[in-house]
Write a protein that binds this DNA or RNA. Structure first.
Lengths: 243, 243
DNA sequence: CGTAATCTTGACCAACGTCAATGTTCGTGG
DNA sequence: CCACGAACATTGACGTTGGTCAAGATTACG
């Protein structure tokens, strides 16, 4: 098990700087590390949840599954993101969480959260800030779903993702980054059919707004795609990453 | 100014039960009451926010406005709901908040929040639970936007609203409740055009799933509409209403 | 090399948007 | 009480966007 003090991920400037006391609080909550193979559910929709998690390495998905089998992807999880907090604090989870690639998560004891609020209110405040930042991102994605057309939606979804990757230092110099999402995943995220997502790609490619090949995503001109999709980057760091 | 101890709204079973200490904490944060006329913005998208609010009486809207003038309604605010927390804790608000009807809000000092976390961690925990419950509701609405057709979306939006009203005791015996939302408001909430929302209404009316006339909403058979739209009621109370 | 998964393309169809004309409700002032 | 106008609801015709189906091309992987 990696101790929180040794963990390098949290040192990125995106994340909330931790005091020694914070690290002790977190070490007290941490149970273990868990490796999850690609495609496996970590949290099951409707199930009881005792732990919550921080993604340490790899990619994850948060999604709903409807009775008719269709899937709505709610969010993509990147290193440092938390999962399962809702399940812990509200008793059960309304969504599933899945490893998109092979991934490893820190497992945190949900029962320790009330104690954390009592002993380290600063950390609790950082936690709620992080939740609210995610809620704001969710609001913006809802607007995309309600008001944008196909090409704009796909562009918005990818530029937002790209921006999050960039802040985590996961984008190479040339502007390319790995993107393990398949066409069908993007379709399930933006509310379109798989085929129509491909048509949207073609449109974006023709306008040189983005390229996507061999699981890599390239955005040649960030500002131009941002203008096209209405995306504005929110430059706030201080995300809490409990790991 | 109404003192928190006198406020009757919070006594409904939906809300978090308050101790005397909680009330003292809240009284310390409360600045004043404010009456807002219908249609007026309380929080402006992009603006700095120093206060947050609890809706005491009337209805409110949370929404985004895009460059092209189109509007996405993110949520309907009902008595007891909070607004502006994101703005206070993240520095500025990404959405506007507007009074839909004439409304009154409690004004709470945002600067007092860190102190509240330190002095009353139980209340902080209730606050984050409430935020997470709202985030879950937002996830479900995102799924509706991404995966349901017109009639299902309108039905889902209204049954969710109806369910929230019911828990606040705002639905009469016969199953009717006041609903000041216009067709265009519903369209802006569910991502459809105004005209198509009307067609969806006709479909729902023809199937006796809901009626809407003279600003009143009637759902004759809750379970049947719930099955039609895929809505499931989440029976958790304990919402924090700071007022 | 062969198989499965994914991407790509075209043809066609259903869902939804837009426009415009008409009807209804409601508030206001005579 | 009635007349008027404004805002909103309703309906039909028609255009556009996106879904579905099916066939080939490409890629990943054993």
């Amino acid at each position: 098990m990696i101790s929180c003090a040794e963990c390098t991920l949290r040192r990125k400037t995106l994340f909330h700087p931790m005091t020694g006391r914070d690290l002790a609080t977190i070490d007290h909550m941490k149970r273990e590390d868990v490796a999850v193979p690609a495609g496996k559910d970590l949290i099951r929709q409707g199930g009881r949840v005792d732990n919550f998690y921080t993604l340490y390495d790899g990619w994850g998905l948060r999604y709903h599954r409807l009775q008719d089998g269709s899937r709505q992807i709610l969010d993509v999880l990147l290193p440092g993101d938390m999962a399962g907090l809702t399940g812990v604090l509200l008793g059960h989870s309304a969504h599933s969480v899945q490893a998109l690639t092979a991934a490893s998560f820190c497992v945190l004891n949900g029962d320790a959260l009330p104690g954390m609020f009592r002993k380290n209110p600063e950390l609790a405040l950082a936690l709620i800030r992080t939740c609210l930042a995610d809620a704001r991102r969710a609001d913006l994605r809802a607007t995309m779903l309600g008001r944008l057309n196909a090409a704009e939606r796909v562009g918005y979804f990818l530029i937002e993702l790209y921006d999050r990757l960039r802040r985590r230092g996961m984008v190479a110099r040339g502007g390319a980054c790995p993107c393990p999402l398949r066409g069908v995943d993007i379709a399930d995220a933006v509310g379109l059919s798989r085929v129509h997502v491909m048509r949207a790609f073609k449109e974006l490619r023709d306008e040189a707004l983005l390229q996507r090949e061999r699981g890599n995503l390239l955005i040649p001109d960030f500002a131009r795609l941002a203008a096209y999709t209405g995306y504005t980057t929110i430059s706030r760091s201080g995300r809490l990453a409990i790991l």
